[in-house]
Computed example of a mutant assay.
Amino acid sequence: MNLNFKEIATATMVLFAVIDILGSIPVIISLRKKVGHIQSEKASIVAISIMIAFLFVGERILNLIGIDVNSFAVAGAFIIFFLAIEMILGITLYKDDLPETASIVPIAFPLIAGAGTLTSILSLRAEYHVENIIVAIIINVIFVYFVLKSSKRIEKVLGQNGLGVIRKVFGVILMAIAVKLFAANIGGLMS
Rank of each mutant, 00 (worst) to 15 (best):
K180H: 12
I142D: 04
T117M: 07
F170Q: 07
A113L: 09
K168V: 12
L158C: 01
I138D: 03
F143T: 05
I186D: 04
L163S: 00
V157H: 06
I166T: 04
I166Y: 06
K168N: 06
L148K: 01
S123C: 06
S150M: 12
S123Y: 05
L163V: 11
A184S: 15
N185Q: 02
L163N: 05
I154E: 04
K149Q: 14
V179M: 14
I186M: 13
F146Y: 15
E127F: 09
I134T: 05
T119C: 15
K180P: 02
F170L: 12
I121W: 02
T117H: 10
T119F: 13
S150G: 14
K180R: 11
Y128R: 05
F143D: 00
I139M: 09
Y145W: 14
I139R: 09
I166K: 01
V157I: 15
I139S: 09
A184Y: 01
I186G: 06
I134Y: 08
S151Y: 09
V165Q: 01
A113G: 08
I134R: 09
L118S: 00
A176G: 14
A178W: 10
L174E: 08
V169P: 07
G116R: 07
A176H: 04
N140R: 05
V130A: 11
A184N: 15
I134S: 02
L163I: 15
M175L: 13
A176T: 12
G187M: 13
I134D: 02
T117R: 03
H129K: 13
R125F: 11
L124T: 01
G114L: 07
S123T: 14
K180A: 10
L118W: 04
V141E: 08
A184D: 15
L158W: 04
L174N: 01
L174R: 03
G116Y: 04
N140Y: 10
F170K: 02
I137H: 02
A183T: 13
I154S: 00
T117F: 08
V144I: 11
V130W: 04
R167E: 08
V130M: 10
G114I: 03
S123K: 03
I134V: 15
L122H: 09
S120H: 02
L122M: 13
K168T: 11
V169F: 06
S123E: 06
L158E: 07
F182S: 09
I133S: 03
G116P: 07
Q160S: 13
I142E: 00
S151T: 10
F182N: 11
L148P: 03
F143K: 02
N140S: 08
G162P: 01
I154C: 11
Y128G: 01
A115Y: 08
G159Q: 01
F143H: 06
V147D: 00
